[in-house]
Design a protein around this nucleic acid. Structure first.
Lengths: 316, 316
DNA sequence: AACGTCAATACCTTCAGGGTATGGTGTCGG
DNA sequence: CCGACACCATACCCTGAAGGTATTGACGTT
């Protein structure tokens, strides 16, 4: 049996007349007669009673008509779903994020993507950088978010956002009196660094910047993530350099200050990482969304920094 | 797209290798390659990524595999259901019965049929003889049960059961003292007749028998159906000839007596009636069941009459 | 009786599906 | 580094099934 047989059968059942059905199907009458006979033979069932007026469905035919229509609908739906999946509009995207990445850019990007591709199910996984790379290789995730990604032969990265570094200080800290803090002033104060774990990491970024500014920072404590770092600042452990997005996290006693005279590299990247060989249309769609998102964000950046500055003023 | 494409696609998806899939499908590898390409072209979607190890499903392919399996199952089920419907094993049978027909043979026959064809939905309609004929012509019912059916050009009948006539008498009636009542003794006693309505009917049967026995019955009352007739007997309105199956209906004060010297025709038929042009396999199956049922019943008849007689003895 | 309207049959034609042979590409062991 | 191997893809031929035209057969209608 063939889908053609079903199409023909439905036409004949609806027209109750082979000639008219044949016209509707744009074929001539005899082949249609034959196809119907074939279908009946194959099923071993009379689907029609032939009357001088035309073709009339038997009970079995009546039942099979309902089934045939159902099959037609199911097939149509299947092709349509496959096509949408092929365009990345339907399916599942497994995304890994690291601890404090939920703070700003990523949720907005995910929201944008979900708006554009509402039938793609986004599954979030929290993983460290090393876990993300491992999971990508095992195809357990499609894309991961991280900072400071070392290039990998089989993985590609895409820059999602760049953020300036801010200084998190306890409000009672001497530096908190300053509005704009020259970068070299950091040399004198114990500093909380993060994250421990896989290198290269944000720690290396900070160390590099200090080195460039001509000093080696006093390390007060190394911690696992930004949230813990800011928490230690709140308890008076020292100062801590953090990406701007961490400011969405407010802890009592902590204030954020921009850096003056900071080296040009005092910006930190947020990238996403994915398999270089992944041709999945969903990934392609996601990366495209990320690209658009970043452009959009850059256009807004002036505004963000302006309002940001205002809020620091208000903070003082 | 074709069911063949789906079959091939499923095979390739399962084997993850065109060569093996081709072997499984008993075709050679190149045509299978082509069919898969065709399917992909038609859908406009890559279903597989070609690796040096073989064929690997894409996300869209994964989804389409599930759909394809579903379609395969639906098609299988549809053909199977159509076949069963063609054998009369699936569908609906609209049956008409008359008032007191529920008393004996019909429910047993319907039960037998339902046991043999459990997926045929039996819908019961209560109709008079005239209504049944009308409903058959309009195809609102498939088969009707009745007695005394006059032959119709477009309708056929099938004898389902023959039953002897018994006499229903009030226990205080003088005849109740007799065990075997000669038929001619009925001449002297007022009689309840039924059913009123369409002729020929059971009334004509009774009148004919009396005429043959050489008398004209004294009519006490004409009523609509056997149940009412027996009820009148219970109230002392007179005697009433009834088919044997009515004895399943016990009313206080009513006893049933066999007839002695009854004419050979003192049996009444229960037949079913159906469209002569109805080719429905369900009807055929039902008529076949009715035939078997009747043969079976005839074989048992001796026993039934015997126990019947015993129960008359017990009744006295 | 003649005509009209169906479906069914006979016979031809075409093209899609299947076969064989071969090419192209990546992986693996020597 | 190279040949052997395992894949899939391509080229080309062949057969059979689907479609076309012409006609028959069955049945109602005028």
């Amino acid at each position: 049996m063939d889908l053609r047989h079903l199409r023909y059968f439905i036409a004949v059942a609806e027209e109750e007349n082979i000639g008219r059905a044949a016209a509707r199907l744009h074929i001539s009458q005899p082949p249609l007669t034959r196809q119907i006979q074939q279908l009946e033979d194959e099923l071993g069932v009379r689907l029609f009673t032939r009357t001088p007026k035309g073709m009339e469905l038997t009970q079995a035919g009546e039942l099979f008509l309902a089934e045939a229509r159902n099959i037609r609908a199911v097939v149509e739906q299947a092709t349509e779903r496959a096509q949408r999946a092929g365009q990345g509009k339907l399916g599942r995207l497994d995304v890994a994020i690291f601890g404090s990445a939920i703070l700003d850019a990523i949720p907005k990007l995910l929201l944008t993507f979900r708006k554009a591709y509402p039938d793609v199910k986004i599954v979030l996984h929290t993983m460290t950088k090393a876990e993300q790379i491992e999971a990508l290789r095992q195809r357990r995730i499609t894309v991961g978010f991280n900072r400071m990604l070392a290039p990998q032969p089989d993985l590609a990265t895409e820059l999602v956002a760049t953020e300036p570094l801010l200084l998190a200080i306890n409000e009672n800290h001497p530096l908190a009196r300053e509005t704009n803090i020259p970068f070299r002033m950091l040399a004198e104060h114990p500093m909380v660094l993060f994250p421990t774990g896989a290198r290269p990491s944000f720690i290396d970024k900070v160390m590099g910047l200090c080195q460039e500014a001509g000093f080696v920072p006093k390390v007060s404590q190394e911690v696992g993530d930004a949230v813990t770092g800011v928490a230690l600042v709140a308890s008076g452990f020292g100062i801590c350099l953090v990406p701007e997005s961490v400011t969405t996290l407010t802890l009592p006693g902590v204030v954020f200050r921009p850096l003056q005279d900071a080296p040009a590299q005092a910006w930190v990247d947020l990238s996403c990482i994915y398999r270089a060989d992944d041709q999945s249309p969903i990934l392609a769609a996601f990366l495209e969304t990320a690209r658009l998102f970043r452009q959009h964000k850059q256009n807004e950046d002036g505004a963000i920094i302006a309002t940001g500055t205002e809020s620091w003023v208000a903070d003082i």
